[in-house]
Amino acid sequence: MAAEDPIAHNELDALTRRVEAVEDRVEALQVQSGGNFAAVIEGQAALRREVRDGFTKVNARFDALETKFEALETKMDRNQAQIVELLTALVGKNLNEN
Rank of each mutant, 00 (worst) to 15 (best):
A2D: 06
A2G: 10
A2I: 13
A3S: 11
A3Q: 10
D5T: 02
P6C: 04
I7T: 10
I7N: 12
A8M: 08
H9R: 14
H9P: 00
E11Y: 07
E11K: 05
E11C: 01
E11G: 02
L12P: 02
L12E: 03
L15W: 00
L15E: 03
L15S: 09
L15N: 00
L15M: 09
T16E: 14
R17L: 15
R18H: 10
E20W: 05
E20C: 03
A21E: 10
V22F: 11
V22G: 07
E23G: 09
V26L: 09
V26C: 11
E27A: 13
E27I: 00
L29V: 10
Q30D: 12
Q30C: 13
Q30W: 09
Q32F: 08
S33D: 10
S33M: 08
G34D: 04
G35W: 04
G35Y: 01
N36F: 03
F37H: 14
F37M: 13
F37N: 14
A38V: 10
A38F: 05
A39E: 09
A39K: 07
V40G: 06
E42T: 06
G43T: 01
G43A: 00
G43V: 02
G43Q: 04
Q44P: 07
Q44L: 15
Q44G: 15
A46Q: 14
L47I: 01
L47P: 03
R49M: 12
R49S: 14
E50P: 04
E50S: 09
V51M: 06
R52P: 00
R52V: 10
R52C: 09
D53A: 05
F55Y: 12
T56E: 12
T56V: 04
T56H: 07
K57C: 06
V58E: 02
N59F: 05
A60I: 02
R61Q: 05
R61K: 09
F62Y: 00
A64S: 05
E66L: 09
E66F: 11
T67P: 03
T67S: 14
K68R: 13
F69K: 09
F69Q: 11
A71K: 10
A71V: 02
L72C: 01
E73L: 12
T74R: 14
T74I: 01
K75W: 08
M76T: 14
M76F: 14
D77Q: 14
N79M: 10
N79D: 13
Q80L: 12
A81W: 02
I83Q: 05
I83S: 03
V84Q: 08
V84P: 00
L86R: 12
L86H: 08
L86T: 04
L87A: 13
L87N: 15
T88S: 11
T88L: 10
A89W: 12
V91D: 13
V91M: 06
G92P: 00
G92L: 02
G92N: 07
K93C: 01
N94V: 04
N96E: 15
E97Y: 01
N98D: 15
N98I: 03
N98H: 14
